[in-house]
Design a binder for these strands. Structure first.
Length: 693
RNA sequence: GCCCAGGUGGCGGAAUUGGUAGACGCGCUAGGUUCAGGUCUUAGUGCCGAGAGGCGUGGAGGUUCGAGUCCUCUCCUGGGCACCA
């Protein structure tokens, strides 16, 4: 295929040239890759939706328009998802690269010029969407597959050669783009669908024209709805040998050849006699020469005779080694299998991979949602079908972590390049539109560019090393996890780092203040007074919450918030009696354990200070004491007509009638009931009551 | 155009199954400590109101004893795909 040669990492663009391309047939797996998305419940919906769109399954009908052009007979194939509108076809349009366009171009200079112009246009798909829809009549006609009527063939610059058949049937009556095209070039518009009796006029397009409805002006199909009409039309086409139902995919095969030196070589040898011959197994892997220096004049491999000149593995004649290398996504599609088979120099993977795979928890940026994650799913299935693994899916649970954003500050001099400045060197004030700042070093104002992803070019990155040096690695970890759930983007804030640092210092001081009082005993739950028992309950409650947040919900921010809340309760606890100190010792031990996954270094030092000689990494996650969680009295929220009016305290064992009596007796409730009859009494055990009057 | 995720105090966010909206942190206010600033520390902090109380999760309706959460419509923001036939 002819491709653009601007794939070089170094050097100027080269001329378009004919080069072989290597494809992996990912489209063969399209159906399975799509269907299996439903079996990935622990992937984010967003990622699954993106893959679904990318694979892009469309059900429709493939139909053929027969032609006889100067004695040359054939059929023009077209794919449509709206076969029910087939009786409204007034033209067909083909892509500039379509054989029929080429045929017409050979007979007509005007068509030639138009086709060449289309081919010179941008290949960027985003540009294609915005360019003006243009076309030219080829002078050729094809026959409608059902009516036999003559239908003119146009070349349209909006028709994609790469999707479907590279040709579309034009139904101006019910397709907005075809409508505009027909209006522009004076083609007839026929109405063949009635959408619930809505008005129809060929003067202007209305959104409902494209909706599903009943066939009209369609002969035998009149009155049929979409599904029935499609079935009937597909059946009639099939009888004539001119069509059948078809599924079309947006997904394309994966072109993996890259014209780059530094990549995994494609193991093919080109022999003048035998053609493209695979490198035999005993000569694999093909190793890249490591002594070549790119000089900007093309692929260095193309100039290395030692690499290029090889005998043909089949016939032994002089042959040439392929210089294209593989897309880097090839390597990243199975590295995780290889991690599970370390040291094996005889095979790609071995049985150990079946034990470890699939990856339990995969973490990556959202930018990998489609390419890397889809290629890996494809590659894993290929390995399965080659007998290399038993698994279908490489990644069981997926977490797409968010990016860290920071402010962007810059100056745009009258001449010269825009310069960016590190937000750390900016004295800023105001919010949003009113945000202004000056550079500390010269006191002169800067322009504010909003917040954006951190990048070297914008100089708004935060160096983790500087944070580690100033606050320690634990504070840096605590801060980055304490703001938002891991999949959210978040804005960097120096004040936030200070807050995390402050918490670490407070906890440290609390631990050491406690330790100075000497060794503490184990708490005796039955001997505790009310305050001690309540504190102990809070400790074990927090342990449940933090364990769930880290282990199941992966909400590290709320886990940290729960630990901070517990710290606040501990700091307010003043009982220095033997039992009071025993409860405090247990509480600090548990706080240190629950924070250890997040701030491992500081908690290890605190753990030792608290009298333990073990390493925290060897400790198990502590079990909450179920007995400590039990409350003697509970607080019940009392509502009147759904509005909060009082909080009442009742024994945990109280039944509904006791709660009702206490609620109605409460002055805050009584005030709003005021002798009016109670129409309804809602009781949610342990939580609330609602008095409806 | 289609698909997805969002919209909650001054800010980041919490509210897990329809049941106390605003946890936790930042910021801010006042006090203590200090010669002063910072650190540290105590108290307060959704809005209106002297109070009682009222209002409050983008907007408008609805379901319900009860809605940030469910339903309908709508506005806005971010992301993905996009001449896809």
């Amino acid at each position: 295929q002819v491709i653009d040669g601007r794939g070089w990492r170094t050097g100027a663009p080269v001329e378009k040239r004919e080069i072989p391309m290597y494809y992996l047939r990912i489209t063969q797996y399209a159906e399975e890759l799509l269907a299996a998305l439903d079996r990935l419940p622990e992937w984010p919906d967003r990622v699954r939706a993106m893959q679904e769109n990318w694979i892009g399954r469309s059900e429709g009908v493939n139909l053929a328009f027969p032609y006889d052009i100067g004695g040359q007979k054939g059929t023009l194939a077209v794919f449509t998802t709206r076969a029910d509108t087939i009786m409204g076809v007034t033209f067909v349009a083909v892509a500039a690269e379509h054989p029929l366009a080429e045929l017409a171009a050979g007979r007509d200079a005007g068509v030639r010029a138009f086709v060449d112009e289309c081919r010179r246009g941008s290949i960027m798909e985003a540009d294609l969407a915005t360019i003006e829809k243009k076309g030219i009549a080829t002078g050729l006609t094809v026959r409608h597959p059902l009516t036999g009527a003559e239908v003119p063939v146009w070349v349209g610059n909006y028709v994609l050669m790469a999707y479907g058949e590279g040709a579309v049937m034009g139904v101006p009556g019910h397709d907005e783009r075809d409508f505009a095209f027909a209006k522009k070039y004076g083609l007839p518009v026929i109405r063949v669908i009635d959408v619930g009796g809505q008005p129809y006029s060929t003067d202007a397009w209305q959104p409902w024209y494209a909706e599903y409805g009943r066939c009209v002006n369609s002969g035998a199909y009149d009155g049929l709805e979409y599904a029935a009409a499609t079935d009937a039309i597909a059946r009639d086409l099939e009888e004539k040998g001119l069509g059948r139902k078809q599924v079309v995919w947006r997904l394309r095969d994966w072109g993996i050849s890259r014209q780059r030196y530094w990549g995994c070589p494609i193991p093919i040898i080109h022999c003048p006699a035998c053609g493209d011959v695979p490198v035999p197994d005993d000569q694999l892997p093909v190793r890249l020469p490591e002594d070549l220096v790119p000089d900007g004049s093309g692929n260095p491999l193309g100039k290395s005779k030692a690499f290029l000149d090889v005998p043909c593995p089949k016939c032994g004649a002089a042959a040439r080694r392929e210089t294209d290398t593989m897309d880097t996504f090839v390597d990243s599609s199975w590295y995780f299998f290889r991690y599970a088979s370390p040291g094996n120099d005889a095979a790609m993977v071995d049985s150990r991979a079946n034990y470890w795979m699939p990856v339990d928890q995969y973490i990556g940026g959202i930018e990998h949602a489609i390419l890397h994650l889809l290629y890996s799913r494809f590659w894993t299935r290929v390995m399965r079908d080659c007998g290399l693994t038993d698994v279908d899916e490489p990644f069981q649970r997926l977490l797409t972590q968010g990016m860290v954003l920071n402010e962007i500050w810059f100056r745009r001099p009258a001449t010269g390049r825009i310069t960016y400045h590190d937000p750390a060197n900016v004295e800023a004030s105001g919010e949003g539109e009113a945000r202004t700042g000056v550079l500390r070093s010269d006191g002169q104002p800067l322009e504010y560019g909003g917040v954006g992803t951190m990048s070297k070019s914008r100089r708004n990155g935060v160096d983790p090393q500087a944070l580690v040096e100033r606050y320690g690695a634990d504070t840096a970890r605590l801060f980055t996890m304490s703001n938002v759930p891991p999949e959210h983007t978040f804005e960097w804030s120096d004040e936030g780092v200070e807050g995390a640092f402050r918490f670490m210092k407070r906890l440290w001081k609390l631990v050491h203040a406690h330790v100075e009082g000497g060794p503490a005993a184990k708490p005796e739950p039955d001997a505790l007074d009310g305050a001690a028992r309540e504190l102990r309950r809070q400790v074990h409650q927090a342990l449940v919450k933090v364990g769930d947040d880290i282990g199941r919900r992966r909400m590290f921010n709320t886990a940290i918030a729960a630990a901070m809340e517990l710290y606040n309760a501990l700091a307010a606890y003043q009982d220095r009696s033997a039992q009071g100190r025993a409860v405090m010792q247990e509480a600090l031990d548990l706080v240190v354990l629950m924070l250890s996954p997040i701030v491992p270094h500081a908690t290890q030092a605190m753990w030792r200070a608290l009298g333990h000689s073990t390493l925290l990494v060897d400790e198990r996650w502590p079990e909450p004491d179920a007995a400590a969680l039990v409350k003697d009295t509970i607080e019940i929220v009392a509502q009147v007509n759904g509005r909060l009016r009082a909080r009442i305290s009742v024994p945990a064992a109280a039944d509904e009638s006791a709660v009702r009596e206490k609620a109605l007796a409460d002055p805050g409730v009584a005030k709003f009931v005021e002798g009016r009859p109670v129409r309804k009494f809602i009781y949610v055990p342990g939580k609330l009551v609602n008095v409806v009057v």
